[in-house]
Structures are given as structure tokens and as C-alpha cells.
Amino acid sequence: MEKDDLFKKRMTELSKKAYFRGILTFSDFLDLNEQNMLQSLSMKDTGVTVKLWGGYETAERQMAAFVPDAFCCKEDYPLACLRIEPLNRKFSDKLTHRDYLGAILNLGIDRSKIGDILMEEDSACVFCHTSLCEFLKEEICRIRHTSVKAEQITEITDFPVPKREEVSGTVASARLDSIIALAFKTSRSSVIPFIEGGKVFVNGKSVVSNGYTIKDGDIISVRGKGKFQFGSVTNKTKKDRYHVILYRYC
């Protein structure tokens, strides 16, 4: 059985377990491709609703909650958030997203147990499965040449949200390839392989058409490049081009 088929089978099993036992069931963290596959499964007549959450509104990696229709309590997702920061900022390396993720995975942790990693000025906030929280607090003590400490953010209301920067410019139209090229300051031809290769997601759904029209508020994720939200078309120029505003996640 192929990997995708195994994944779909697992999601179906979680759905059935939620329905027949009348309990909440949860997946591990799902990437965009897995979320897309989950949305393609027909759950309409199963007596179960699927809800996604990754710790904040626009999280890329999210857990799926399978909620029986008769269930009336709030979904309590089994995720936690840790802030990892240097013990001595003065002598710390400039750590990247890859550095933090690599240090965590080198502990033998499966990627599906780790959600988004949000970079801050000299630290990072890591979403993880609650079962790993204490382990990570004890074991994450050094990243590259930098001694670090990990502390849990205990209140959900204190969970971090990603920073965004405004990007504006003109495009011939609000086509997917044109907007991505503007967002990452590159050419349309260079982004086509990402789109045709299934690496572009709009609002969590895979889009493989270069000419797909972006709408106000759409969130576009490009694997290997980043994520941004399309703002709006502000006006049309004298050269029949469109001035647009978007917000790229830092």
C-alpha cells in the first residue's frame, strides 16, 4: 500500500473511532499536502466533523480533530508551545529555522510531532505534541555552538503569531504565477515549476494551474519559499497593470 493510501486509511480510522466511541480523536501535525488529502476524503455522512488547528489562525502545520456530531465540548488539542532561546544572547550564534528543526529531529523525534516554528529576533517558538513537551525542555540544551533553554508557554492566549511585512507592486493580472513572483521578488518563469510540481497551496488546497485567479484574503503557501496573504488590488495603472498589496510572513 502506498504512503498516501496509508495516510487516508489512518484518517478514516480516526474518524470511525470518534464516531463509534463518541470521543474526540486527533491526528499528528499534518503538512499542507496531507491536509489537502484529508479534505478530499468524503466525511459528510460519517457523523463526524473535521476541524484543523495548529496553535494560531494561519498555522501551516495543523492537527486534525475528528469531532462526533453529538460532542458539545470545546476541542482541546494536544499541542503545546515552547520558546527556545540562548542562555547568553551576547555570545550566541545567529540560529535559523533549519538549525532549530534539525536540533529537534536529531533527538529522534518524528516530524509529525512538531508543528510550526516561528522565528523571533533571537529565539524561536516551537509548536509540538504535548507528549513531547517535558522531553524537549530537558533535552534541548545546545543548538550548534549555542547553549539554549526551552520553556513552555502555558497560556494559549500568549501563543505567538507570525510577523508579516507588506509587499506592493504591479502585475498584469491577479494570476497565481504573477502574484507569487511579486511576493518573492522573482520571475514568473521561475515559479512555474513550484506550481506544476504541486508545491503551491491556496487556503490549504493544492493548486497546479498557473492561471488560477487569486482573491482578496487568500493565503498562499509555496513549499521551499514561504507563505503570504493576498491583500487586494488597489488600482489600475495607465499602462493597464494592477497595483496590488500583499503581506508576506516573516
Rank of each mutant, 00 (worst) to 15 (best):
R89P: 09
L79A: 02
R98E: 14
T96H: 08
C81A: 13
A103I: 04
E121M: 08
P78L: 05
P78Q: 07
Y100N: 04
L82F: 05
R83N: 13
S112G: 10
V126D: 02
R83L: 12
I109H: 02
G102M: 01
L118C: 06
L87W: 12
D122F: 15
S123R: 10
T96I: 05
L95E: 12
A103M: 08
R89V: 15
V126Q: 02
M119P: 09
D93G: 06
A103K: 02
D110L: 07
L95C: 12
L101P: 00
R98V: 04
L101C: 03
K113W: 07
S123Y: 13
K94E: 13
E121W: 03
Y77A: 09
T96W: 05
D116F: 09
C81I: 01
I84W: 08
S92P: 11
P86A: 09
P86S: 05
D93K: 09
L101W: 06
I109E: 06
D110E: 12
C128Q: 14
R89Y: 12
D99R: 07
P86M: 13
I109Y: 01
Y100V: 07
F91I: 15
S92W: 10
A103H: 01
D110C: 06
L101V: 01
D122A: 15
P78T: 06
A124V: 07
S112P: 00
E75Q: 14
N88A: 11
R89A: 13
D99Q: 07
H97E: 03
E75P: 14
T96A: 11
K94P: 03
Y77L: 11
S112D: 11
F91M: 13
C81K: 10
R111T: 07
P86I: 11
L101R: 04
S123M: 12
C81T: 02
I84L: 13
R98H: 07
L79Q: 04
D110I: 06
L105P: 00
L107N: 03
C125G: 00
D116C: 08
D76P: 05
E121L: 10
M119R: 07
D99E: 02
N88E: 14
C125Q: 01
D122M: 14
T96F: 10
I104V: 13
T96V: 06
E85D: 09
I114R: 05
A80R: 00
Y100F: 10
A124I: 08
Y100P: 04
I104H: 02
K94D: 15
I109F: 03
P78Y: 04
N88F: 12
L118Q: 03
I84R: 09
L82S: 01
K94G: 10
C125A: 14
P78H: 11
D76Q: 15
G108K: 00
A124N: 08
F91E: 15
L82W: 01
A80Q: 08
C125S: 14
L101A: 03
C81V: 11
T96R: 12
G115M: 08
D99C: 01
R89I: 13
M119C: 11
D122L: 09
E120H: 15
N106V: 03
F127G: 05
D122C: 13
C128F: 00
K113P: 01
C128P: 03
E120F: 09
I84F: 08
E120K: 14
L79P: 04
A80G: 12
S123L: 07
A103F: 02
L95V: 11
S112I: 11
S112F: 05
S92H: 06
S112W: 02
L79S: 02
R111G: 05
L79E: 00
C128H: 09
